[in-house]
Computed example of a mutant assay.
Amino acid sequence: MRSGQMIRGIVLLFASFALLAFQGEAPAASAKEIDIKVNAALKRFTKEVGGADAFLAEAKGVLVFPEVIKAGIGIGGEYGEGALRVNGATVVYYSTAAASIGFQLGAQKKSVILVFLESAALEKFRHSDGWEVGVDGSVALVELGAGGMIDSTVVNKPIVAFVFGQKGLMYNLTLEGSKFTKLER
């Protein structure tokens, strides 16, 4: 085996390990804990983003991950737990996980909100066994327009996402490769 192939194999092995570690038997939040954090994330979203209340009122469903932790040293992974809300009520809990390889060092915490604007997109998501962004469905990542308002050019997409960091909406992020899996709570 050539050294380049061996290095790639080792990197893939560590990436797989990192992803499995995030999905392992870590202390999971209770349904009540998740719901409290989801409420806080939605409150922050509507406070910081102009037009968010009206936008959410039109949603067929909203998937909220209040805390997604991403960490890495060359090889990274992220994990978070959240809830899908339909008509304002939690209908099922989900986890999100992703692995990455590349130049990275450190950790970050972010909140992710996916808004389903079409019933067909929501139903496809709800009936999937494990849904992956970019494979099972396309998600438009929203950037705020002038004055902190929702950019209306992406509102016509079936699924739109918002990613918040500690200091507001984060730029140049992707959700590609993020996998969502139902949780038993």
Rank of each mutant, 00 (worst) to 15 (best):
V160G: 09
A140F: 12
G134L: 01
S119A: 14
E123V: 11
V91A: 13
G102C: 13
V91N: 07
V135E: 11
I150H: 04
I113M: 15
V92L: 08
G148Y: 06
E118Q: 12
E123S: 10
K124V: 13
S138I: 03
I150N: 08
K157Y: 14
G148M: 14
F116N: 01
D151K: 06
A146S: 15
A146V: 15
W131C: 04
L117N: 08
E143K: 05
S152L: 05
V155P: 02
G145V: 06
D136Y: 07
S128A: 15
Q104S: 15
S128L: 03
S119I: 10
K109I: 14
D136P: 07
S128M: 02
Y93F: 15
S138Y: 14
F125Y: 11
G102H: 09
E143N: 13
F162M: 09
S138P: 10
I159N: 03
N156F: 13
K157H: 15
L114A: 11
F116P: 00
V112H: 07
E118S: 09
S152V: 08
S95L: 07
V142C: 12
I159K: 04
F103P: 12
V155S: 09
I150K: 05
L122M: 11
V139S: 02
D136N: 13
A99P: 03
I159D: 06
A99C: 05
L105H: 13
V142Y: 02
V92T: 11
Y94K: 02
A121E: 02
M149C: 09
D136A: 04
Y94T: 01
A121P: 04
D129K: 02
D136G: 10
I113P: 01
G148H: 13
E132K: 09
I101L: 12
H127K: 10
V92Y: 05
S138F: 15
H127L: 02
G137F: 04
M149G: 12
G145W: 05
L122V: 05
S138Q: 10
K109T: 14
A120S: 11
A107F: 14
A98D: 11
V92D: 11
Q108N: 15
G102V: 10
S138M: 01
L122I: 06
G134Q: 02
V112E: 13
V155W: 03
D129V: 06
F125S: 00
F116W: 06
A140K: 00
S128Y: 06
L141Y: 07
E132N: 05
F162I: 08
S119V: 10
V135G: 01
I150T: 13
V154K: 08
F162V: 04
D129G: 03
D151F: 11
I150Y: 10
D129R: 02
S128I: 08
L122P: 01
L144W: 03
P158D: 01
G106S: 12
L117G: 00
S111T: 15
E123H: 06
G130Y: 07
S111I: 12
V154I: 10
G147H: 10
A99W: 04
V115T: 11
I159W: 12
I101Y: 05
K110G: 08
A97C: 06
V91Y: 13
G145S: 15
A120P: 00
M149K: 13
A98W: 00
V139Y: 05
V133I: 02
Q108H: 14
M149S: 14
A121V: 03
F116R: 00
F116L: 03
A140Y: 07
F162A: 04
L105E: 11
V135H: 11
N156E: 14
A146G: 15
D136T: 03
